[in-house]
């Protein structure tokens, strides 16, 4: 069953087109990697879905509800949550309070902290392996811990769709491995996941499908192995000239 549907989504900033006619369907329970080089439009698309940006054209539907132009807090309450590439944690608040704050107004939440919420915050920290950091201010955590706390905070809003923005960027191979297993654990809870992944180090290992963008346009979509072999994706990432079947007019002139 489709959970998120993008229909002819475009986003322009003045004369610049950041997204052009994106069509994509994300099914419930799927993990999809959104890949592409710098400036491909990945973050713009994530911001359009999460409500930070309003699409210039097209439709974004979540569970058949049109969410174009809804405020981020409304979209969160509908069941879409996100993490951030650069730390946007509540730095002066403890790790535990960061999660509690997310339980105030999320999906089906009431603005009142109860013992149940405190238990849930403890469980959320245990889920990301940070029980011992519950009282540490978020600003004092390491990069890996901050990303995990960001994930726990996003999950605390009880999302059906989770948008992960470069969750493994700058990670060592060991940390990437940990991130892979964490994403698999989140998936096992039945959460649908869209991962933005510039370096492909995470998404190819956990995704069912990849959606590749370049210059704001969809260049490929499908199983990871297939997308990675796609000449347009190779050209976008590596700048390779490709003359075989599937080349585009831009591909012809590239290199």
């Amino acid at each position: 069953m489709s959970l998120l549907t993008l229909h002819a989504v475009s986003k322009t900033f003045g004369d610049f087109t950041a997204l052009k006619d994106i069509n994509f369907v994300l099914d419930e329970g799927e993990v999809v990697g959104l890949v592409g080089p710098n400036g491909a439009g990945k973050s713009t698309l994530l911001n359009v879905i999460s409500g930070r940006l309003k699409p210039s054209y097209g439709e974004v539907r979540f569970d058949n509800v049109l969410i174009n132009g809804l405020k981020p807090q409304r979209i969160c309450r509908l069941g879409i949550s996100r993490t951030f590439q650069s730390s946007r944690l509540f730095a002066g608040m403890s790790a535990s309070d960061n999660i509690l704050a997310a339980r105030l107004f999320g999906k089906g939440c009431r603005p009142r902290i109860t013992g149940q919420d405190r238990d849930a915050a403890r469980r959320a920290l245990a889920f990301v392996g940070m029980t011992h950091k519950a009282d540490t201010p978020a600003g004092d955590l390491t990069l890996s811990e901050q990303r995990r706390l960001d994930l726990a905070r996003a999950l605390a809003t009880r999302p059906r769709l989770l948008l992960l923005d470069e969750i493994a960027a700058g990670f060592s191979p060991v940390l990437v491995k940990q991130a892979v297993s964490l994403v698999k654990k989140v998936r096992a809870r039945g959460v649908t996941i869209l991962i933005i992944d510039h370096f492909l180090n995470l998404s190819v290992r956990v995704s069912d499908r990849l959606l590749a963008l370049d210059h704001g346009e969809k260049v490929a979509a499908g199983p990871p192995a297939e997308v990675l072999r796609n000449p347009d994706v190779m050209r976008a990432y590596l700048g390779l000239r490709h003359e075989g079947p599937g080349h585009t007019s831009r591909g012809k002139h590239a290199g």
Binding site: P72, F84, R153
Partner: peptide
């Protein structure tokens, strides 16, 4: 406290 620390993130958690 959350909204004064980081408004964008506060919006994203509803």
């Amino acid at each position: 406290q959350a909204l004064r620390e980081e408004e964008t993130a506060a919006l994203s958690i509803g």
